[in-house]
């Protein structure tokens, strides 16, 4: 998707990317990026949290209006972790150690 962003920007269409894979998007290099530090799957807000989703979308609108330079990343202020689940950073593509 970052490559699509670059193609559109090169051809006169402003874009903003919403995502949670910070390294992949930033290494490719896009004009504007709204980063939420969430597990992959919900880049525009937690499921069923419409207020959060609207706030994240608005951050993108603001970035479209105000980013002066390409590669502008804004990290949204939201935190995924709850008392019940602090493990998602580790559990994605986790390499299981073989027990002897």
């Amino acid at each position: 998707m970052s490559l699509v962003s670059r193609h559109l920007e090169s051809n006169g269409i402003p874009t903003v990317v919403f995502g949670s894979a910070r390294d992949i998007v930033e290494q490719c290099g896009v004009a504007r990026f709204v980063f939420s530090d969430f597990p992959l799957g919900n880049p525009t807000g937690k499921p069923w949290d419409t207020e959060m989703q609207k706030t994240i979308l608005e951050i993108g609108f603001d970035l479209l209006e105000n980013a002066r330079y390409p590669r502008t990343t804004v990290q949204t202020p939201f935190v995924w972790e709850t008392a019940d689940d602090v493990s998602w950073r580790r559990s994605y593509m986790e390499i299981k150690k073989q027990s002897d």
Binding site: F38, P39, L40, G41, N42, P43, T44, G45, K46, P47, W48, T50, Q53, K54, L57, D85, W88, S91, Y92
Partner: peptide, 17 residues
């Protein structure tokens, strides 16, 4: 390749608002 053990995509607003 989203994180299927950590979340779900049942709410469109979370990825297609």
């Amino acid at each position: 390749s989203w994180h299927k053990t950590a979340t779900h995509t049942d709410d469109l607003g979370s990825f297609l608002p």
